[in-house]
Design a protein around this nucleic acid. Sequence first.
DNA 1: CAGAACGGAATGAATATTCATTCCGTTAAA
DNA 2: TTTAACGGAATGAATATTCATTCCGTTCTG
Lengths: 189, 189
Amino acid sequence: MSETKRELILEAAMVLFEQRGFDGTTVPMIVDKAGVGAGTLYRYFENKEALVNTLFQECVNDVLETLNQSYPHDSNDSRKQFAHIAKQLVSYANKNLTALLFVDSHVNGYYLDEASQAAYMRLRTFFYEFIDQGKKNEIIRPLPADALIAIIDGAFISLYKSCRAGEIEETPELLAGVEEACWDAIRIH
Amino acid sequence: MSETKRELILEAAMVLFEQRGFDGTTVPMIVDKAGVGAGTLYRYFENKEALVNTLFQECVNDVLETLNQSYPHDSNDSRKQFAHIAKQLVSYANKNLTALLFVDSHVNGYYLDEASQAAYMRLRTFFYEFIDQGKKNEIIRPLPADALIAIIDGAFISLYKSCRAGEIEETPELLAGVEEACWDAIRIH
DNA sequence: CAGAACGGAATGAATATTCATTCCGTTAAA
DNA sequence: TTTAACGGAATGAATATTCATTCCGTTCTG
């Protein structure tokens, strides 16, 4: 039962933070949406900043865990690795799109503490390793990893924003097309 | 002379909004940075929201104007058009990177009014037309324009964020590489 | 031409509002 | 019955906005 309230608060905060940003979301908004008293929030979180940081770390770790699930670390087939990344990203988006968008939009927040930054760095390192290996094997372009990651990230995030807005429909063909476009962006031709 | 104070406020607000977001930036911060009295801000802008909206519209229009400068509207050569877009984007980034990042990070703000959204839509329409034409000529992939735009946008924005952070250096080779990666992402192979 | 009157621009202290956080009475659990 | 969880009004700090006043360049006036 005590876990429930904490979950309710985290869930409500995630939705609001994603929609309005950290500073644009007030504690009254959060507790209202969560259906708990203001004091309850402070039972579980030291303050508003501790709440975002906890939430951010949980989401980031969740995403990273999903990516790592049966990831072919030892393969030298970058295309296969990329297919896995794309598949897991899609899978996570369907499970918890809000979390994905929340992480994406809070990555540069000045309120993120060291633990949050470290957690995010671990996620980026996953991508760095994928890209470095592909560069070494001369499969992936010799461009800054950050730029290549941004291409993949930007494509998937915007894809799902459009899906959520009802502008486009998430079909297997569409997903395959976006995956191919991203792959063509990062691979050497 | 009366324009000067207004410009000072807009410039200070742009830098702060870009760094800390709309809600993370207080009016005292803005007037402090601008070196004007609090009341002066309200002489030129109805309130804080009117300030972001004015700023947003000015920046968006500025970007669009740059993109349109000698753009080959009537050409059917999508590659040439894309080269122009990339060149002008780079040119604008060098002129006013803060403005570019400000627009990018405020595009989804709940505080944007209709005029701001309309201005932004005009910018997107520029890209839509480029992509639609390329699709019609079977040069550009039949994917949602939003996803294709996101790839280009994501790549350039993240590139310049890395440059500004001093992580990478903006060389002609790098720019050419990113341009090529984006083009390979959107074109049919 | 001197200087008085004017008006718009600018100021920053004062005000009203909103917000994060605390505190304590109530409720539920053990 | 004791203890922990909870709610929400109360608090004080921070914030956006207002407004009475000053400042200064321009324009009238004698």
